[in-house]
Design a protein around this nucleic acid. Structure first.
Length: 585
RNA sequence: UGCCUCAUAGUGUAAUGGUAGCACAAGUGACUCUGAAUCACUUUGUCUAGGUUCGAAUCCUAGUGAGGCAGCCA
């Protein structure tokens, strides 16, 4: 069975146009891209677009894509995040771009990929290149293009000037090459405390682009690094490390988000002022994905976790990739969405409904149909013999006829959905009502004869008669009634915990008008119930997706489900035009 | 108010000087043993003003609006 949602014909965008032109002209022999997350948080829906872009370009142009940890800041980065990033990337591109994903041999720092069949691999790390980066810095100093600056952080800010007004040169700008070399060596040797000195590029303090005003290249941080340990106490900054990491790995197209656009002149300056291999990498920027109805900044996601609003980074309500995965959303759906939104430089937000549509499209194709009653009400078929059971054939997936049928048991006492009965039906109500008829899916047409209530007036049971000639598949089953509802046999149903997830935010823009997103959190984003499931669901598997007919799509929870004790997560509801209809009234 | 960038239906996104199309959303109808899916149809758009051109969403100029940039974060 194909699980790949038909994707837009052939992705084409301004970045792919550039790549195609570079390949066409022979400027680039082999396309190499990279996905460079900083390991200081979990990957989320926004990253999915970047992953699909970088890996997508690689696979479309017979290139490769390096997974690289952009870990130049020892204070913020952790191994836990590295591991989650690897798992999430593999999950997202699984079955689609695995073959273009490159790792390197564990421990190797050359920037070269692991050889075929190497079993001991790990992602690339910017921190692998600290020595090389250091040597390049020395070269810059020798060329008179970098200097050690003694300004304090505050002074550095003040000297930088502001947009619109030029900065002024650091008094340390014209130190001799020898002095700079000596000082840089002593920075590296740990002679100075944090913040005491920096290494800066010597460019132009009056440059209209603030990032070109003698930008910092290295800072002193006496801190252990998650990957290099205590080997270094000077750490390169992003602008210096990123372009050179690209160069060292042979990246041809370095694709990043729009906020780095103003950094591009610096990216170019660094690689153009160092003897790097040619052709050198080039940076291109696109607008990041901003879905409505979510909050995806790392800081806020971290707050969700730390403040206990959700159960963890992989809570099924989180827009993290691990959250989406645990929710049961297939990677194919995430990909179809991330690719479908397109790539431009226009800052926009994407309606969450587009994502939901991608999920439903994928699930409709692949999900196994099952009958399950979420909020049960008892039905007794008074003309059906007590103790009798018959097996009926139920279709597994009408969109995949080869998926066949499975047997479901029918008996005198059933559960049906509370919403499928109305004592006082609204207009156009097609379901069960007193004196009315409805089809029990795959079974009989029944008529409601009597509504039984308890002392409090609460409905406890519906007494119905079945038209025994109307059995599905039988010779006299052709009689039509307007409504068909789902049901389970009370004697055969299994109870299971079902977690009904809803959007974490009802507002399209949870932070509109400067509100704190916390005040917009949907208090009913999780509702836990015990549902009545058809017995075949006791054999549900984690790999499978299920549609509880007429209700929603579900998947087993990967953490809390156990053999004999299934726990289902609601992935997404079916579209419900009836609910929309009733809201109109 | 210096530099950079962007502007096409409600939301996204195509059209690369030649009929403004697609998706989502919204609406109407058909079909339906899932009020799902499917199918058909409908509504809504080139920021403004000039210019170049036989012809402009596209090229030029000016304006307007929006965003990014002044971390020893990435």
């Amino acid at each position: 069975m194909s699980t790949e949602t038909p994707e837009t014909p052939k992705p084409s965008d301004f970045i792919r146009d550039i790549v195609a032109a570079d390949v066409q002209s022979g400027k680039v022999q082999r396309v190499i891209t990279r996905f460079p997350p900083e390991p200081n948080g979990y990957l989320h829906l926004g990253h999915a677009k970047s992953i699909c872009l970088n890996f997508g370009i690689a696979r479309e142009f017979d290139g490769v894509c390096n997974l690289r940890m952009d870990d130049t800041n020892p204070a913020k980065e952790e191994v836990e995040y590295v591991e989650s990033i690897i798992e999430d990337v593999k999950w997202l591109i699984g079955g689609w771009a695995d073959h273009v994903l490159r790792f390197k041999h564990a421990g190797d720092t050359s920037g070269k990929p692991a050889s075929e069949g190497d079993a001991n691999t790990e992602p690339f790390y910017a921190s692998d290149y600290f020595q090389q980066l250091h040597d390049y810095a020395v070269a810059l100093i020798k060329a008179g293009k970098a200097f050690v600056c003694d300004l304090t952080p505050e002074q550095t800010d003040a000297y930088r000037g502001a947009p619109g007004e030029p900065g002024k040169p650091s008094p340390w700008r014209d130190r001799s090459v020898e002095e700079n070399l000596d000082l840089f060596a002593r920075m590296k040797a740990g002679e100075f405390p944090d913040g005491a000195r920096t290494l800066r590029a010597k460019i132009d303090m009056a440059h209209p682009n603030v990032w070109m005003r003698d930008p910092l290249l290295y800072r002193i941080r006496h801190a252990a690094h998650h990957h290099t340990g205590d080997a270094w106490c000077i750490y390169p900054l992003y602008d210096y490390a990123h372009c050179l990491s690209d160069s060292i790995e042979g990246v041809t197209h370095s694709v990043c988000t729009l906020e780095f656009e103003v950094h591009r002149p610096l990216y170019d300056w660094i690689v153009d002022n160092l003897p790097v291999p040619q052709p050198r990498p080039h940076q291109y920027e696109f607008a990041k994905l901003m879905p409505t109805h979510v909050v995806i900044s790392k800081r806020k996601l971290l707050a969700f976790v730390n403040e206990g609003i959700v159960s963890g980074w992989d809570d099924p309500r989180m827009p993290t990739l691990s959250g989406l995965r645990r929710r049961g959303i297939p990677p194919e759906a995430v990909r179809a969405f991330a690719i479908g939104v397109g790539v431009t430089k226009f800052i926009s937000s994407t309606d969450y409904a587009v994502f939901e549509h991608a999920i439903r499209t994928n699930l409709n194709d692949r999900a196994l149909r099952r009958l399950a009653v979420l909020n049960p009400i008892k039905v007794v078929i008074t003309n059906y013999p007590e103790g009798q059971t018959e097996e009926l054939a139920a279709t597994n997936n009408p969109t995949q006829p080869e998926s066949g049928t499975r047997p479901i048991p029918f008996s005198r006492e059933l559960w049906i959905e509370q919403d499928d009965f109305a004592e006082v039906p609204p207009p156009k109500f097609f379901r069960l009502k007193p004196g009315g008829e409805v089809r029990l899916k795959y079974a009989y047409i029944i008529k409601c004869d009597e509504v039984v209530k308890d002392a409090a007036g609460k409905i406890v049971e519906l007494r119905c008669t079945a038209d025994l000639d109307s059995k599905t598949g039988g010779p006299t089953s052709n009689r039509k009634v307007k409504g068909t509802i789902h049901w389970v046999s009370a004697a055969h149903a299994i109870d299971a915990e079902v977690r009904l997830y809803d959007r974490l935010f009802h507002d399209a823009e949870p932070e509109a008008d400067g509100r704190d997103w916390r005040s917009a959190v949907n208090p009913h984003s999780l509702q836990v119930i015990t549902a009545k499931l058809e017995p075949s669901l006791k054999d549900a598997t984690l790999a499978e997706r299920y549609q509880f007919e007429r209700m929603a799509y579900f998947a087993l929870d990967s953490k809390d489900s156990a053999p004999g004790k299934p726990v289902f997560n609601r992935i997404i509801t079916l579209k419900d035009t009836w609910a929309k209809e009733t809201q109109k009234g």
